[in-house]
Simulated assay, not measured.
Amino acid sequence: MKDIKHPTRPRRALPPIKVWVTETERAEIAERAEQAGLSLSGYMLAAGLNHPVRSVVDLLAVADLGKVNGDLGRVAGLLKLWLAEKRGQGASSTDVADMMRDFRLLQTQLHEIMARLAK
């Protein structure tokens, strides 16, 4: 999310709003703006108008979770392929069923985490 754009509002129509902060507060605001991928002005505008401010870190985490979910799906696919070719060799059917249930549970948990982060 980049700076909030208001094409119908001239940028210099009114003087800027000044907010007095300590050095520590300014550093924290600057860090949060950077995490969101926004300028200080864009971040303050979004926060002041109560717009959601997403962290770039959160969006990267969603992408990473998506990759893990894909890897998990590939492993489950390889397991199914192995079972089709080597039926009954190397593992009991209950162990395999338990493992597949665990894969599905992990995928569901990943989807839930991704959905929470993407909001």
Results as ranks from 00 to 15, higher is better:
A30G: 10
G42E: 00
I29S: 03
R74W: 09
A84F: 05
D102E: 13
Y43I: 02
A97F: 00
P15R: 02
L105A: 15
M100E: 03
R11T: 12
D58P: 02
R26W: 05
W82H: 10
R101A: 15
R54A: 15
R116Y: 05
A115C: 08
A30Q: 14
D58M: 08
V21G: 06
M114L: 04
V56Q: 13
A84V: 02
L106K: 10
I29W: 00
E34V: 02
L110P: 00
Q89K: 15
D98N: 11
A76G: 01
V75L: 14
G48C: 08
V68T: 13
L38P: 02
A30H: 13
H51V: 04
N69L: 01
N50Y: 14
L81E: 14
A36I: 03
E112D: 12
N50K: 12
A30W: 05
V68C: 05
G73H: 05
K80I: 07
Q89L: 14
Y43Q: 00
H111L: 10
S55Q: 02
S55D: 02
A84H: 11
A13E: 03
L60I: 07
A76Q: 07
E31N: 13
R26N: 13
T24C: 08
R116F: 01
A115M: 11
P15M: 10
R101I: 02
P10W: 10
S55N: 01
T24Q: 15
A61S: 09
G90D: 00
L60V: 12
A63Y: 11
D71A: 10
M114G: 03
F103G: 00
L81D: 15
A13C: 09
R104H: 05
L49R: 09
L59F: 12
W20M: 12
R87W: 09
A63H: 14
T8P: 08
E31T: 10
K80F: 08
K86N: 11
P52R: 03
V62A: 03
F103Y: 08
V62Q: 01
S39T: 12
G90N: 06
R12A: 12
K86R: 13
G90T: 01
R26E: 10
R26I: 02
R54H: 13
G66M: 07
G37I: 08
D95G: 07
G70T: 03
Q35M: 03
R32T: 10
R116G: 07
A36R: 00
L40M: 11
E85C: 06
R9I: 15
S93Y: 08
V62R: 00
G48F: 11
A76I: 05
G77V: 01
A33V: 02
R12N: 14
A97Q: 03
E25L: 11
L81P: 10
R116H: 11
S39D: 02
L45Y: 06
V19D: 13
T22K: 04
P10L: 08
A91K: 04
L110T: 06
L40I: 04
